[in-house]
């Protein structure tokens, strides 16, 4: 089966830092692929190389079966793209901006544009310079989706979106997937990728360090847990519970790290009077340190 995105030893170097190194990336047709990594890891560099905004130092990339350099226009006709650092034409209104994008692309049904704008609650009448970051991001999403491309390349798509709009965006991703389209999205937030993607590629320092099914990533889920009790609790009650690490019990508060299910800790804690419980997703950096360092 041909991959929708396929890079072979793709390298882009900028002097010393940044860039990507010998990247072999394969995105399958119809999947939602999360490209996960901390800021500055090379996500945007990879994406902009796929679209021929920057040229590889060595190696090559194929998108929808076409060469990224030679057939860039055909690729861009078939893909939808949301830039990571979105800048719009500040003087235009949202409607004018989308009309311009639709005209340049050609063959876009205006009804589809309006439908998407309505779904995301994008403001079309105000000049773009008066819009908040999130409202600009909505316009960026509309132009990426409006021609129902077979491949969506989205660089940090949920930046600045409020939670309700994020949910709507996740539904749009799910619909695209159900319609057989491929989505390649970058993110530096793990939960987002877990929620939307089938597979995840993890990039760090310009190198692809792992490609995993989201399901297997979830099995490795790591959480920091903090519980406050009404009175002090005996540490022995929590020692040796499955998946619990770094246990610290001081008087009436408990801190630990849990791998996998929280069930055992919660059941043990239920013996006592719980005042407060917070569970935190670890940062991406912590996951890297835990699994891929």
């Amino acid at each position: 089966m041909n991959n929708i995105i396929h890079t072979s030893q793709l390298t882009k170097s900028y002097g010393k830092a940044r860039g990507v190194l010998a990247l072999d990336l394969a995105v399958r047709p119809g999947e939602v692929f999360g490209y996960l990594g901390p800021n500055g890891a090379g996500k945007t560099t990879t994406i902009r190389t796929l679209l021929d905004f920057i040229r590889p130092t060595s190696g090559s990339a194929a998108v929808v079966g076409l060469d990224s350099r030679r057939d860039s226009i055909a690729i861009r006709r078939r893909a939808g793209y949301l830039p990571g650092e979105l800048s719009l034409y500040e003087g235009l209104t949202g409607r004018d901006f989308l009309r311009y994008m639709a005209n340049l692309r050609g063959g876009v049904a205006w009804r589809a544009v309006e439908g998407l704008a309505e779904r995301l609650g994008a403001s079309l009448t105000q000049p773009i310079r008066t819009l908040s970051h999130g409202n600009k991001q909505k316009l960026g999403l509309v132009q990426a989706f409006m021609h129902q491309p077979e491949l969506l390349i989205l660089d940090e798509p949920t930046q600045g979106l409020d939670p309700l709009v994020q949910q709507e965006f996740y539904r749009m991703i799910a619909e695209a997937r159900a319609a057989g389209r491929t989505v390649f999205l970058s993110s530096h937030v793990l939960p987002e990728v877990e929620k939307t993607c089938d597979r995840v590629g993890i990039i760090r320092g310009g190198r692809l360090v792992a490609v995993e099914e989201v399901a297997s990533l979830k099995a490795k889920a790591l959480r920091r847990l903090e519980i406050r009790f009404a009175a002090s609790v005996p540490p022995a009650a929590f020692a040796g519970l499955p998946g619990v690490r770094d246990l610290q019990v001081e008087n009436s508060s408990l801190r630990c790290t849990v791998t996998g299910s929280l069930d055992a800790v919660i059941k043990a804690a239920a013996e006592f009077e719980v005042l407060d419980l917070t569970s935190q997703e670890p940062s991406l950096e912590e996951i890297f340190l835990a699994y891929y360092a």
Binding site: R48, L51, F53, I73, A74, R76, R77, G80, Y81, P83, E85, L86, S87, L88, Y89, E90, M101, L104, R105, G106, G140, Q143, A144
Partner: peptide
């Protein structure tokens, strides 16, 4: 410089 070139060239224009 304003960063709008990425969007312009996201379209199938050379």
């Amino acid at each position: 410089e304003r960063g709008t070139l990425d969007l312009l060239l996201a379209n199938p224009v050379s």
